[in-house]
C-alpha cells in the first residue's frame, strides 16, 4: 500500500481542522451552526489574493523564498487577510446575526447564515467569476522522504503553520483571560454573565478568531489546490463533521476530527475514487450522530 495518502490526508485534515475550529467556537459560544463559515474561507482567500496582487503592483515582482512557490507578499497578505476576514465576520454579525440572536430563536440564525452564505458565494462569483485561479502557477518538485512518501516544500511549511496556529489557539483558549472567558461562556452562559464576563468581548473574539482561522485554512487550500468561489462550500460538510466528531466546543477536538476526516478521505479515495471524497465525511457524520453524538471530547448538552 502506498503511504502517500498519509501526507494527503494530514494536509486536507489540517485545512478541515483549521476551519472546524471556527465552526465549533461559533456553535458553542453563539449557539448556532454557521453555514456561511465556508464562505468566510473563500472570502479570506480572495482577499489575500487581491492583496498579493496589490503588493505585486506596488513593489514589483519578488523572488519566492528559498524552495517555496511564494515570497513574502503572500505572508504579509495572508496576515492582513486573516484580520480582514475576522473583521468581515464581525461586520456580518453586526448587521445580521446579532439582531436575530437577540430574538432568541437560534434556528432562525442558522437560516440567515444559509442565506448569507449563498449571497457571499455568489458575490465572489460575480466579482472573480467561477474560473479557478492560483497564488502561483509554478510547479514544485516533491521531495522523497522515505517509505514511498513525497512532500513539497510548500506542504511542509503549511503543515508547520497549522501546528503553530493550533498550538497558539490552544494556549490562547487555556491561558489567556479572553480564552477562558470564552470557555466559561460556552459552558454556562447565564453563570458567565453573573460573574461579570463581558459578553460582547467574548462574541467579538469568537468571530475574529473563527474568521482568521478560516482565512488561514483557505490560503492553505489556495496554495496546495486552487482558489474557487465554491472552495468553502465544498469543505463545509467535512468541517461540520469534524466539529461534531471532535465534540462541539473543543478546539483540540475540532483539529483531531479534521485529521481523522482528512485521513479517512485520503484512504477511501484510494479504494473508491476521488469523486466520492465528500461522501466519506457524510458517512462519518452519520456514524457519529448515531453512535456518539457528543463526539470525542464533547460534553453532554444541557
Amino acid at each position: 500500500m502506498n503511504l502517500q495518502f498519509l501526507v494527503d490526508g494530514v494536509l486536507s485534515g489540517s485545512m478541515v481542522g483549521l476551519g472546524a475550529i471556527g465552526i465549533t467556537l461559533t456553535y458553542s459560544i453563539l449557539r448556532f451552526s454557521n453555514f456561511a463559515h465556508g464562505d468566510f474561507m473563500a472570502w479570506g482567500t480572495y482577499a489575500t489574493l487581491t492583496l498579493v496582487g496589490v503588493i505585486g503592483a506596488t513593489f514589483g515582482a519578488t523572488a519566492p523564498l528559498g524552495p517555496l512557490s511564494f515570497g513574502w507578499p503572500l505572508i504579509v497578505a495572508g496576515l492582513a487577510g486573516m484580520v480582514l476576514t475576522g473583521l468581515m465576520a464581525l461586520a456580518l454579525d453586526a448587521v445580521l446575526f446579532a439582531r436575530l440572536r437577540a430574538r432568541g430563536q437560534s434556528i432562525i440564525v442558522v437560516m440567515a447564515s444559509f442565506g448569507a452564505s449563498m449571497a457571499l458565494r455568489s458575490l465572489l462569483e460575480f466579482t472573480f467569476t467561477s474560473r479557478p485561479t492560483y497564488f502561483s502557477r509554478s510547479i514544485q518538485m516533491a521531495m522523497p522522504v522515505g517509505w514511498g512518501i513525497r512532500i513539497t516544500p510548500d506542504q511542509i511549511v503549511l503543515l508547520g503553520m497549522t501546528v503553530v496556529l493550533v498550538t497558539a489557539m490552544h494556549l490562547f483558549m487555556t491561558r489567556s483571560r479572553t480564552g477562558r472567558e470564552m470557555q466559561a461562556y460556552s459552558q454556562n452562559a447565564a453563570l458567565a454573565r453573573v460573574v461579570g464576563i463581558d459578553v460582547a468581548r467574548v462574541v467579538r473574539a469568537t468571530w475574529l478568531l473563527g474568521g482568521a482561522l478560516a482565512c488561514a485554512a483557505g490560503i492553505m487550500v489556495g496554495v496546495i489546490v486552487q482558489i474557487r468561489p465554491l472552495m468553502g462550500l465544498d469543505l463545509l460538510l467535512p468541517m461540520f463533521a469534524a466539529a461534531i466528531l471532535g465534540g462541539i466546543g473543543s478546539v483540540p477536538g475540532a483539529v483531531l476530527g479534521g485529521l481523522i476526516i482528512g485521513l479517512s478521505e485520503a484512504g477511501a479515495v484510494q479504494l473508491i475514487g476521488a469523486e466520492w471524497r465528500q461522501a466519506v465525511a457524510f458517512v462519518i457524520l452519520m456514524a457519529v450522530l448515531l453512535v456518539r453524538p457528543n463526539g470525542i471530547f464533547g460534553v453532554r448538552e444541557r
Partner: peptide, 21 residues
C-alpha cells in the same frame, strides 16, 4: 431518525449532507 433526538442544528447539518451525497 438519526438526528431528531439531538439539537435542532444537527438535523440541518445532516440534511445539508443528504443534498451533497
Amino acid at each position: 431518525f438519526a438526528t431528531l433526538r439531538l439539537k435542532a442544528d444537527y438535523l440541518a447539518i445532516t440534511t445539508f449532507g443528504v443534498a451533497v451525497v
